[in-house]
Design a protein around this nucleic acid. Structure first.
Lengths: 201, 201
DNA sequence: CGAGGATTTCCACTATAATGGAATTTGGTC
DNA sequence: GACCAAATTCCATTATAGTGGAAATCCTCG
C-alpha cells in the first residue's frame, strides 16, 4: 500500500480533525442553551464536570470519546447524531425526517422537534409536536406578548390558554396567547401530530 | 428541571459511555485488519502514533474526539459511520445499502463492499464490487486453493485468471482460481456491478 | 530450528483532559 | 447604583491521552 509522506498528511488531517472536533463542541453549547440548561444541569445529567463542559464548549479542551458519548447521551442523542455536521451556511437548510438531533424535548407522552434552524436569540421558532393518546404539553407562561400558532395534522387536540378552551380536529388551526399558562392535549385515541409556531414579543 | 441524584446517573452513564467507546475502539482494530493495514500504515494515514493506535485498539486508552476524527478519516469513514454501532449479535444482521462503513477498498475506478459480517478468520467473504467503465480490479495470487465465484448484475465484465479469459454479460456467473493473478475488468460503457464470493483454502 | 524483517507491544516522558472548589461575571430587583 | 442569586470561568491538582524509541513477538524462508 503506497503511503503519502507523513508530514503532509498529518498536517492536513490534523487541521481538519480539529475543525470537526471544534464544531461538535460548539454544537454542544448550542444544544445545551436550546434546552435552557445550565452547565450544572448538563453536568449532572452527563456525569461530566461543569468545568470540563465549560472548557469543551469554549474549545479549550478536546473531549475524549467516552466523554463525548456521555454528553451526547445526556442530550438524548447518539454520538453519530451529535457529530453529524450541519456545517457551513447554505441557501437551503434541510432537516431530514429521521434526524433526531433536532429533538428539543421528549418524554413518555410528548416529543418536540425544532423545524427552524436552531440559532438562538431569534424571535420565532417552528416546532413539530407529537403527542401520545391522553398525553399533553403543558407550558408555563412565556414572555409577555408571546403567541403560538398551531395546525393539527393528525389526531384531535384540545387547546387551553388561561381560562379559554377549544377543540381542534385534523386540518384545524388556532392561535392563542402563550404569555399565560397554556396546554395542548391529545384528546384522540391515536397519536396527535401538531405543527407549532411560537412568536416572542 | 428535575435532576436525578448525581451518583446514580454518573455511574450508569459512565459504564455505558465506556462500553460504547470500547466498542468503537475494537471496531477500529477490525476495520484496520480488514483492510490489511499494519498499525504503521494507519498511523501514517491518520497522523496518530503507532503506539497510541495500539493502545486504543486494545482499550488501554480512550481517544480524544480529534483523534477519533483522524482515525475515522483515515479509514475513509465519517465519525458517525465509525461510531454507528453494529452491536450485539442478532439472528438477522443487516447491512443497509447506504452504509459506507463496510467499504473494503475504494479507488477512482473500483469500489468494494463487504456484504458478509466482517469477522475475520473466516474462510468465506461476500463482496459487492462496483467498477467504472474501463476500470478493473486486479489481484495478486491469494492463498493456495482460493477460488472466487461471481455474478454480474449490471454491465459487462472480462474475467482473467492466470492465462485464461472469459467475457461475462449481465446475469452471467463464473468461478475461477484466485490463487493465481486474476482480474475483473469492466468492458462495458456503463458501470459494472458484480457480486463476488471468495473462498479460501 | 535459527536468522532476519515486519509488526506489535512496552516503557519513559510530555502534553493535556478532567476534576473540585474558589473567584468572577451575569442578570434581575429594589 | 448596590445587592443577591445563578451561571460561568479560572486555578491548582490529578489522571491519563499521546509520543518516540527500544524491546518483544510474530512470520516466513532456508
Amino acid at each position: 500500500m503506497p503511503v503519502k509522506k507523513k508530514t503532509e498528511l498529518s498536517e492536513r488531517s490534523t487541521a481538519s480533525a480539529e475543525d470537526v472536533s471544534r464544531h461538535v463542541c460548539t454544537r454542544i453549547h448550542d444544544l445545551r442553551r436550546q434546552r435552557g440548561w445550565s452547565l450544572d444541569v448538563l453536568s449532572q445529567l452527563s456525569g461530566v464536570s461543569r468545568s470540563m463542559l465549560s472548557q469543551i464548549e469554549r474549545n479549550q479542551a478536546n473531549p475524549t470519546l467516552a466523554v463525548t458519548v456521555k454528553i451526547a447521551s445526556a442530550l438524548g442523542l447518539s454520538v453519530a447524531e451529535l457529530v453529524e455536521q450541519a456545517p457551513t451556511v447554505h441557501n437551503i437548510e434541510v432537516i431530514r425526517a429521521e434526524d433526531r438531533s433536532h429533538i428539543f424535548r421528549s418524554d413518555e407522552n410528548c416529543s418536540i422537534r425544532t423545524l427552524s434552524p436552531l440559532h438562538l436569540e431569534k424571535d420565532v421558532e417552528f416546532y413539530e409536536v407529537l403527542i401520545n393518546p391522553g398525553g399533553s404539553l403543558r407550558s408555563a407562561a412565556h414572555f409577555e406578548g408571546t403567541r403560538e400558532f398551531l395546525t393539527v395534522q393528525k389526531g384531535k387536540v384540545t387547546v387551553v390558554s388561561d381560562t379559554e378552551t377549544t377543540e381542534l380536529n385534523r386540518g384545524d388551526s388556532a392561535s392563542y396567547r402563550a404569555d399565560v399558562t397554556h396546554e395542548i392535549a391529545n384528546s384522540s385515541r391515536t397519536d396527535a401530530l401538531v405543527f407549532l409556531v411560537v412568536i416572542y414579543q
